[in-house]
Amino acid sequence: MLKWLMERIKNIILCPVNWFWEQYNKYKKNENYLKIIGLFSISVGSLLSIVVALAYLLSIPVTYLISHPEWIFVGFLIYLLYSYGKSQSIANQEHNKQQQVIIEEADQLALEDNASRGYEPICTFMFQVLREVAEEANLKLPALIGDIEMPVNKYDVINGITYYYFVCYKKTIELLDDNEIEIMERQITSAISRKLKSQANSSMILESYKDENGTFYNGVCLDSVEDMGTYIKLTVVPMTPQYALLLRNQKQRALMRSDAKSDFSTSWDDQL
């Protein structure tokens, strides 16, 4: 506030000075020195008037404070209180940030621990699924659980969602096109659904999830299939509220893109 006030006062004081130099540059070209002297006199007179007026205005509160020094103490006390409050507010914000970091780190560690403990049952489940769907999807039949395990980086926890990674070797080394990958995704997803239903009463229960909109999701979802040449990489996610929300948002964005494309095509056809 004080800085802004001082800046305003400076601009007011310099106003006639700046005005003079603007006029000076204009009349100097015509060598009209008499006009320049007149403008200088006006500028100096305006400057003195402004300085005197400001001095008078500033003298009023100064005179009052000299007569009532207790207000100086009150003002200083208010300044100290607000300065202390500001420092406390900054300290509280820093403390809250540190606490939030600690909580987030603890949550991440808990998620990592859950992901580690959940790997074995998910791996067993996917081994059964891939053995069931291998022939249909033109994949090699895995003989051992180790055949579908990634050598490193078996899972990731990203934004509260656990992604498990598995492999299954192909019968050919030819790269699959997008349509073939889409068909394979449907085949594996169907196999996952069948296996979940068949294990509904087993000890390894992977329960389905119902979101707030009433949409049901499998307890295990196939997130993606990637063709890595000699094998496919599968990303599998145990269903959670966070992942259900992610799927819903992805679906909404896909619908919006589809609608936008449809509107563009309609508009283009109308123009033609």
Results as ranks from 00 to 15, higher is better:
M1C: 05
L2R: 01
K3Y: 08
M6G: 00
I9R: 05
I9K: 03
I13D: 04
L14M: 07
C15M: 09
P16M: 03
F20Q: 01
Y24T: 01
E31T: 07
N32D: 09
L34S: 06
I36R: 01
I37M: 15
L39P: 00
A53F: 09
L57R: 07
L57C: 03
I60G: 07
P61G: 02
T63W: 10
G75Y: 04
G75W: 02
I78G: 08
I78Y: 09
S83N: 12
A91L: 10
Q93N: 12
Q93C: 10
K97P: 02
Q100R: 13
V101N: 11
I102S: 13
A106L: 15
D113H: 15
A115L: 08
R117S: 11
R117M: 09
R117N: 07
G118V: 00
I122E: 04
T124A: 11
M126Y: 03
V133K: 02
N138V: 00
K140R: 07
L141I: 13
L144H: 06
K154T: 03
Y155W: 04
Y155S: 01
I158C: 01
I161M: 02
T162V: 07
Y163R: 00
Y165Q: 09
F166K: 01
K171I: 12
I173R: 12
I173W: 12
I173T: 13
I173K: 13
L175A: 13
I181H: 09
I188Y: 07
I188G: 07
T189G: 11
T189L: 14
S190H: 14
S190P: 09
K197T: 14
K197E: 13
S198T: 13
S203P: 10
M204E: 12
D211P: 02
T215K: 14
V220E: 02
L222R: 04
D223C: 07
V225W: 07
V225S: 00
V225M: 03
M228I: 15
G229P: 05
G229A: 04
K233A: 04
K233V: 05
M239C: 00
T240A: 01
P241V: 03
P241G: 04
Y243D: 11
A244V: 01
L246R: 02
L247M: 11
N249P: 05
Q250N: 15
Q250E: 13
Q252S: 11
A254Q: 08
L255I: 10
M256I: 13
R257I: 07
R257Q: 15
D263H: 07
S265W: 14
S267W: 08
